[in-house]
């Protein structure tokens, strides 16, 4: 964990409201998929608090990690301001923070499920899996409102992972929720594990589906947090195993086994 004022390398618009921003740093060579950063505009007090962003990808040059990327949707004050950043701007970042998706080289079949901008940490996860394993039998399930919100499809395809799509309005892929196409695939081809990130409703559904089919399931969740380092205790998450005390997204997560936590509306 480190606090750095670092340079923006690029800030590319992927689609209306969606951007991929690159930051220059040599401190992320041991960062793992699922970990996050806390971002702030240096020396500004409005917006006041840092915002958490998953690490979307690492940037490598000549075999060295020279930076990282975040994928974000413009939803509020901070992301609006972020969308106006240009190359060379300085951003104050603390990271890498939190735990990560645990993986195994022995998985023959992995399902990655991403809803909307929840795809952000999943591309990093997929590229790490691809480095150590044959991913040709793995599948990624992308869900979004419409074709305009569908992100990273080609990136997953390039990694050699099968991409299945569902949109709520049916503008591309199958009409419906991503969890509908997931259930169909589970019946055809039982996976070793499900990894997920997306809206709370989707994560709740993943918890139910994985329990029903006895498949281990790990999800990355997002909660409001002020510090990201375990000081504010704002990011409380209800625990199934220890109901007498809360877990915290920044200390115990952001990746949780769906059997560990109770899904209430985090945001």
């Amino acid at each position: 964990m480190r606090q750095e004022k670092i340079k923006v390398l690029w800030n590319k618009k992927l689609a209306p409201f969606y951007y991929r921003i690159g930051f220059k740093s040599n401190k992320y060579s041991s960062a793992k998929p699922g970990q996050f950063i806390m971002l702030r505009f240096a020396d500004q007090i409005n917006p006041l608090l840092r915002r958490p962003f998953s690490i979307h990808r690492l940037i490598s040059r000549d075999g060295n990690i020279v930076g990282l990327e975040a994928l974000y949707k413009v939803v509020g004050k901070c992301t609006k301001k972020l969308s106006m950043c240009v190359e060379g701007d300085i951003i104050d970042i603390i990271g890498p923070l939190g735990n990560s998706f645990t993986t195994s080289d022995n998985y023959n079949n992995v399902f990655i499920v991403a809803g909307g901008v929840g795809v952000a940490p999943m591309l990093f996860l997929a590229s790490c899996l691809q480095q150590n394993t044959d991913v040709s039998k793995f599948s990624v399930f992308l869900g979004s409102r419409s074709k305009h919100d569908l992100l990273c499809k080609d990136d997953f395809s390039r990694l050699g992972i099968k991409v299945l799509i569902a949109t709520e309005d049916g503008s591309t892929g199958k009409k419906g929720f991503v969890t509908d196409i997931l259930e169909t695939s589970i019946k055809e081809n039982h996976p070793d594990i499900i990894y997920g990130c997306g809206p709370t409703a989707m994560l709740k559904a993943l918890a139910l589906i994985s329990e029903m089919h006895s498949i281990p399931c790990r999800v990355s969740i997002e909660t409001i947090m002020a510090c990201g380092i375990g000081a504010c205790l704002g990011c409380a998450v209800e625990s199934k195993k220890t109901p007498e005390k809360y877990l915290h997204t920044c200390l115990n997560g952001p990746v949780f086994d769906t059997k560990e936590i109770k899904f209430v509306n985090f945001l």
Binding site: L48, L49, I224, C232, L233, G234, V237, Y246, F266
Partner: peptide
Amino acid sequence: SKGNKPPRIVETPCGMLNAIGLE
């Protein structure tokens, strides 16, 4: 002490409200 139920934090102009509840 377990503290209060989440959400426990919300940002306000140049400030924040917290209700951690002394966890």
